[in-house]
């Protein structure tokens, strides 16, 4: 009974956050979120649901998750002084466990000075260049992956809560258009694989709904973690489409839209996937 009330409350909070969509039981990473209104999916599921049991176990095992090396590197970076301002993340933000809690559930957000959206990696690099006077980390670097995993991990279990408001709506619209646009020689859209045929078997792979709640994700194929931006490139290339650059406006808008589609899903960084 108490549990039920708690769940109902959580649902209420989430539905406020998500602007009307109602949320059902969040039973960990395989949570289904019942959507109402304008959301294209009747139920939202983490890719965890379709991962092989061995893969799920690798993700869940605190000591065996292969992304741990990166998580540790990120943790060390948090308090490492860098750049000519001689500052560390910690000097401005104190303990990441409290200050970074929930951050990953909100990004990408609108960034006034650039008049567009920025994602978590870009926010981190802005802190480095602006406040630490340090060099920005490269997209595929162990440093950027590590610090992003470490920051994102502080939101684990919290529901994704991307806000679509007057400022972000135009970018959300662009991300949405991208999602439904056929591209490449094979002429497929994201929606073909992740909306129409999720749960279906494409060769030996089971298609998921293509959510971002576990990124940066450790991919067994890559043998290292990768950002959601890198995943987009891979999905474009699969259909023989020319990918965009990581961090391009196109992909940041797409990330905002994709994360919105996953609103309500608990954060689960670093996820492990094929």
């Amino acid at each position: 009974m108490g549990r039920f009330i708690k769940m109902a409350l959580a649902g209420l909070v989430a539905s406020v956050l998500m602007g009307g969509a109602a949320m059902a039981a969040a039973d960990g990473k395989s949570a289904a979120v019942m959507n109402k209104g304008d959301h294209p999916l009747p139920e939202v599921w983490s890719g965890y649901k379709w991962a092989k049991p061995e893969t799920q176990a690798t993700q869940d095992d605190e000591f065996e998750n292969p992304a741990n090396l990166w998580t540790e590197q990120g943790k060390a970076l948090w308090s490492k002084v860098d750049g000519s301002a001689k500052k560390s993340c910690q000097e401005c933000h104190n303990d990441a466990k409290s200050s970074m809690k929930g951050v990953a559930t909100r990004y990408p957000v609108y960034y006034g000075p650039w008049k567009k959206l920025i994602n978590l990696e870009q926010r981190i690099n802005l802190c480095r260049t602006k406040f630490m006077k340090a060099k920005a980390f490269k997209w595929k670097s162990d440093d950027l992956l590590g610090i992003t995993i470490y920051v994102s991990k502080q939101s684990n279990g919290m529901p994704s809560a991307i806000e679509v408001n007057a400022q972000t709506k135009p970018f959300w619209e662009k991300g949405k258009a991208h999602y439904y646009k056929r591209r490449g020689q094979l002429d497929m859209a994201c929606s073909h694989c992740h909306e129409k045929y999720f749960g279906g078997q494409l060769r030996s792979n089971v298609l998921t709904q293509g959510h971002a709640n576990g990124f940066p994700t450790y991919r067994l194929k890559w043998q290292r973690p990768g950002s959601i931006q890198r995943r987009f490139k891979g999905c474009n290339k699969q259909v023989r489409a020319k990918p965009y650059k990581m961090g391009s406006d196109e992909y940041i808008n797409l990330e905002h839209y994709v994360r919105w589609r996953g609103n309500g899903l608990p954060n689960e960084t670093p996820a492990v996937r094929n």
């Binding site: 646009k181 056929r182 591209r183 490449g184 020689q185 094979l186 002429d187 474009n236 290339k237 023989r240 489409a241 020319k242």
Partner: peptide
């Protein structure tokens, strides 16, 4: 077709 990768442009599968 939209944004076909360079090496496949103008070509059929």
């Amino acid at each position: 077709l939209t944004r076909v990768m360079g090496k496949f442009k103008g070509k059929t599968v």
